[in-house]
Design a protein around this nucleic acid. Structure first.
Lengths: 232, 232
DNA sequence: GGACGAGCTTGATATAAATCAAGCGGTTCC
DNA sequence: GGAACCGCTTGATTTATATCAAGCTCGTCC
């Protein structure tokens, strides 16, 4: 991997505190790869041979059981994913598929574990990262168990508006059907729920959402820090 | 804290590899406390001043939103809980309440963070522990999103039978209403689902469950490693 | 331009789950 | 012993969600 490429991930919080030598050991056998849209990167149950870092594009993590499929998470750059499987040398719990053309850096899991075993700074950074990941999933689980479909959608839209900079109009990051699965609902119900949010000032044209009356939407969504604040 | 008491937790995987001096620093200001049933140990949103370790009894972790409540996890001894909040010095995402009379060891979060900052072995053990916790929540989330109520209950019973040693009859660990909430269903639906499982050889008398035909139940439940195996 | 396909929407319907309302069966406490 | 309570169960009903079946819209491709 060339230096220009390692630079793209050097700033990630999990690498920030480690010294250059350790980082170099991590990147020695790493490689960069660009994938077209809709490519399966790996499947649930496979051994986790590489720690994946998404540099550009978008990747969805999904899960399957008994012929059913759901979306667990949508990964946006720059961030690592499936860190826990790498650390535990355990099979993937989720499958990964590119949503659009994506560039990834792949670090051999064995190298990640070796550096983690010898570099204290890296180990500590991983603790903080994994603690954050854990809390992220707990929040998502609370969201699923405590809210119904419309409430989840309302909160999702508020969050997306913030991510997009807060303007009244913004574009959904992925297909509606994927967002529906992420929120634990069918595409049909997603569509109906979105129309019901018209009562709260939400309109949509294709992938563009406009929130005319955010206060009204917030009154319905009732976002709270212990579910909706990604920083906590 | 007396040595007889620190011994109860010394064997936990998060402490196993650290040297005695570091462990002693962790335990210096720790204390042991016994709580009666139904006591709230802490509430969602409060600062995480102590890492909690359950030595005996049972504790439920629950979450609230907009007047609704759900059970996120039932902790059994000996295990730590809310490790992620301690590490990140962040507020609790869940509330904790004793289910029965319980004995806990409380380690000041600041001490945990200090030792973690200086002891590499402890940091590495925490990484593995948190990676395991993360994967646990992911599995639980897959269970919620991919299965309906009866399927979740069927898998829960199979798991409990295994935990109880595999005998056909076993006793549920907590009130049915709490199990219902854990599984994301109402007590009424839990009751009905349990009765429907009669078709698959499941009978119950009070808190005692008997699985007469495990194969039949497994055919319905379809447990898979990537959701139901706690070791992976 | 027109045919096709994919994703989205909509309506009708079926199923799952929640809610409401009793009643049952223990236990606790006078 | 009996009253009161609590958790569980059951049935009736409502609501939420999923499924099925079209149709629509907007691209792409010939």
């Amino acid at each position: 991997m060339r230096e220009s490429e390692t630079g793209e991930i050097r700033g990630l919080t999990i690498f920030a505190d480690m010294d250059d030598a350790a980082f170099a050991r991590l990147c020695r056998a790493a490689y960069v790869q660009t994938f077209p849209p809709q490519v399966e990167l790996f499947a649930e149950g496979e051994p986790s041979d590489f720690l994946h870092i998404l540099v550009a594009g978008q990747v969805e993590l999904c899960a399957h059981w008994n012929g059913r499929e759901t979306v667990m998470e949508i990964v946006r750059p720059v961030s690592s994913f499936i860190l826990a499987a790498t650390i535990r040398d355990a099979p993937f719990l989720m499958s990964a598929r590119t949503v659009e053309k994506s560039r990834l850096i792949l670090l051999p899991s064995q190298d990640v574990r070796n550096v983690f075993d010898t570099d204290g700074a890296f180990a500590r950074a991983l603790v903080r990262e994994l603690a954050g990941c854990y809390r992220g999933v707990v929040k998502s689980s609370k969201n699923l168990k405590l809210r119904n479909g419309i409430e989840r959608l309302a909160n999702y839209l508020i969050r997306q508006q913030d991510l997009a900079g807060g303007a009244p109009s913004f574009v959904l990051p992925v297909e509606k059907r994927k967002i529906a699965a992420l929120l634990g609902m069918t595409p049909e119900n997603f569509s109906r729920a979105l129309r019901l949010l018209g009562e709260y000032g939400v309109t949509n044209d294709g992938m563009t959402i406009t929130i005319a009356d955010r206060k009204s939407l917030v009154r319905l969504a009732k976002p709270v820090r212990m579910i909706d604040d990604p920083e906590i």
